[in-house]
Design a protein around this nucleic acid. Structure first.
Length: 323
DNA sequence: AAGACGAAAGTGGTTGA
DNA sequence: TCAACAACTTTCGTCTT
């Protein structure tokens, strides 16, 4: 049996018209019954109705908030009518998946044929962007979990990657490389900085490639540039202290030491890990929880010599300040 | 003996001509 | 593109606790 041709042009034209009507309605819509422009939106029911005559104009509004849950059937304050997860940028279609299962619902004959046709159209309408995002966001999720990073970073990285796709920065670059650069940038945005080497190890991607892609992201994405701060030693201290099993007192002391010594921006151009390591070294001695230079150097992924150089520098500044 | 210190030589990245 | 430079690393010998 020959397959029935689908007239995509007609279909797209129809969809565009529908979209225009919707967009117009969002800005300036009048009730078709009484002509009133006083409309009310009921977010709970997902309805838009006329304030004058009460006619319902739209009953399929999407609620973007988190789902409510009723823990007791006697609780009158919330109901369970809101179904499904909230929208999330971690999914290619933001979680608003539309699928057709032609076998479901007991459809027969012509009905089932229509269902098949709709499924086919729906599948073909998925854009290239959506298809490529599927792979990239999966890769992102795996890398983030391998590195043990919080979900907040995953979401920020997903947003950066989407922006990169929109700005057409993927062409000519590997998806993994851009994903890794997005994660590196997201870590800095979320103030949980990781070094290029750490991201490279987690993403199984070259450190140079990530650095190169990161520079491109920063130069082309202006929103990102505004959000990313310079990684400071203080941002590294909490993590290193936890790894070295040092108390929060040492952690606070180290942070205040960095602030005292480098409040004038003197740490610029210096490896923040080195500054953090030296501050932790001094703080651990002063708070009687001493760690050796070797132990700290190992955790901070730098050498003992760098700790010594920063240590000397900081001690010189401290004697100046403390007298 | 372990940890700290310092010198010397080499590496990789940045900057400016 | 290349030289100059600062920061950092590696290695190794010496000093201190």
């Amino acid at each position: 049996m020959p397959e029935e041709e689908i007239d995509y042009d007609a279909l797209f034209a129809e969809m565009e018209t529908a979209e225009e009507v919707l967009q117009e309605g969002e800005n300036d819509i009048a009730c078709p019954d009484c002509g009133s422009r006083s409309l009310v939106t009921d977010e709970r029911k997902g309805e838009v109705s006329c304030n004058e005559c009460g006619v319902i104009l739209d009953d399929e509004q999407i609620e973007e908030g988190a789902p409510t849950r009723r823990f007791s059937k006697d609780d009158p304050t919330v109901d369970n009518s809101h179904h499904g997860a909230p929208m999330s940028i971690l999914f290619p279609d933001k979680g608003l998946t539309t699928t057709f299962n032609p076998w479901e619902g007991g459809a027969k004959g012509e009905n089932r044929a229509t269902q098949f046709k709709m499924k086919k159209i729906n599948d073909r309408l998925k854009s290239n962007k959506e298809r490529s995002l599927t792979g990239a966001l999966g890769d992102l999720a795996r890398t983030v979990s391998r590195m043990g990073l919080p979900k907040q970073v995953q979401e920020a990285a997903a947003q950066i990657y989407r922006d990169a796709v929109d700005a057409q920065l993927i062409r000519g670059r590997s998806i993994e490389g851009v994903v890794a650069a997005s994660i590196y940038a997201a870590c800095r945005v979320c103030k949980v900085p990781r070094t290029l080497d750490e991201v490279a190890a987690g993403a199984r991607c070259g450190r140079k490639e990530i650095g190169r892609n990161y520079t491109t992201l920063m130069s082309k994405l202006t929103q990102l540039k505004q959000k990313v701060g310079i990684p400071s030693a203080e941002d590294f201290i909490p993590r290193y202290c936890t790894q070295l099993k040092l108390s929060s007192a040492v952690q606070n002391k180290a942070i205040s030491l960095v602030n005292m010594c480098y409040s004038d921006g003197g740490a610029q151009g210096k490896n923040p890990s080195g500054v953090a390591a030296a501050a932790i070294y001094i703080a651990s001695i002063r708070m009687d929880e001493r760690r050796t230079q070797r132990e700290i150097a190992e955790e901070c992924d730098i050498t003992e010599v760098t700790i010594r150089n920063r240590y000397k520098e900081m001690m010189a500044r401290l004697t100046e300040i403390e007298g």
